[in-house]
Simulated assay, not measured.
Amino acid sequence: MFEYHGWITVRESAGEEDDDSRLRQIVDELRERIAAMDSPYLLDLRWMNGEPFIHLGGHSNHRSAPDVFELFAHVATIAPGSYGLLHVRDDEDPRHENETRVLRLVRGTLSEHTEQLLSPCVPTLEDPFTG
Rank of each mutant, 00 (worst) to 15 (best):
L43W: 03
D38E: 15
S60P: 01
I34Q: 03
A76K: 08
H87V: 02
A36D: 14
F2D: 05
N61M: 11
N49Q: 13
P80M: 05
E97H: 13
D67E: 12
Y41L: 06
R22E: 13
R46T: 01
S60I: 04
V27I: 05
T109K: 15
L23D: 07
R101V: 12
E12C: 07
N49F: 13
F2G: 06
S13N: 14
A35Q: 11
N61K: 15
G108A: 07
D19W: 04
R95Y: 06
A65H: 09
W7E: 10
G108V: 02
D20A: 13
R46W: 07
E70V: 07
L103K: 00
Y4R: 03
D91A: 10
D44S: 14
M37P: 01
R24N: 14
N61I: 09
V68Y: 09
E29K: 11
D93M: 05
E97T: 08
N49C: 08
A79Y: 08
T109R: 15
A73I: 00
I34C: 03
D93E: 05
H62S: 13
A14K: 09
S39Q: 11
L86G: 00
S39D: 05
H5Q: 13
R11I: 06
A79S: 10
R11T: 06
A65L: 11
L105N: 04
D93N: 13
L30R: 06
L103Y: 08
H59P: 06
S39T: 02
V75S: 05
G58P: 05
V68E: 10
D67S: 12
L103D: 04
D38M: 08
P52S: 04
E16N: 04
R89F: 10
R24C: 01
S39G: 09
L85G: 01
P66M: 00
G50W: 06
R63N: 08
G84Y: 02
R22Q: 11
L23R: 15
D38V: 01
L71N: 00
E12D: 09
D44K: 12
M37K: 07
V27Q: 00
E12P: 02
M48Y: 14
R33F: 08
W47F: 15
A79W: 03
F69D: 12
P94D: 12
E12H: 08
S21I: 12
R24E: 15
N98E: 11
R63L: 11
T77K: 13
A73H: 00
D67C: 10
R63E: 15
G81T: 03
L56I: 04
V10A: 02
H59D: 11
E16D: 10
H87E: 11
Y83Q: 12
D28Q: 15
E12A: 14
G57P: 04
P40E: 15
G58I: 03
E29I: 07
G50V: 06
D44Y: 11
A35Y: 04
A14P: 06
R95T: 08
S82C: 03
P40L: 14
P94R: 03
W47D: 11
E92K: 07
H74V: 01
Y41K: 08
